[in-house]
């Protein structure tokens, strides 16, 4: 899994590529900490290149959403892989997160 973080004036975007597995917990945590520490109100995740996600990713994603909400900031999934979207929808995560489909 690779993460590229691109900040702009309006938003900070993390583009994740590759499956998110148990081994990616640390790097995901680090990247999410960077997003949490950023000053942009809008935080965007590009998950279009993520075919699968394990509990490591789901847990941290929910936590990121909550922490950003507590900071009065917004998390938006600006692109998502179809497989991932189906999985999110099956557990109703699509209802909580703001998701833009390709």
């Amino acid at each position: 899994m690779d993460i590229t973080i691109t900040p702009t004036d309006a938003a900070i975007t993390a583009r994740i590529s590759g499956p998110i597995t148990e081994q990616d917990g640390e790097s995901l945590k680090k990247a999410f900490s960077e997003l949490l520490a950023a000053s942009q109100k809008q935080v965007e995740l590009d998950l279009s290149m993520v075919p699968i996600i394990t509990s490591t990713g789901i847990g941290k994603l929910i936590l990121l959403f909550r922490k950003l909400k507590a900071q009065a900031r917004e998390l938006k999934i600006k692109a998502i892989n179809d497989n991932l979207y189906e999985m999110f929808a099956s557990i109703n995560l699509d209802r909580m997160l703001k998701i833009e489909r390709n």
Partner: peptide
């Protein structure tokens, strides 16, 4: 533990983003 507790909370506790219901 943190991942599990976070997920379980989402699965089984009421969420404001889910019309005050658990997943």
């Amino acid at each position: 533990e943190q991942d599990r507790v976070t997920m379980i909370d989402f699965f089984s506790n009421r969420q404001s983003g889910l019309t005050n219901k658990s997943s």
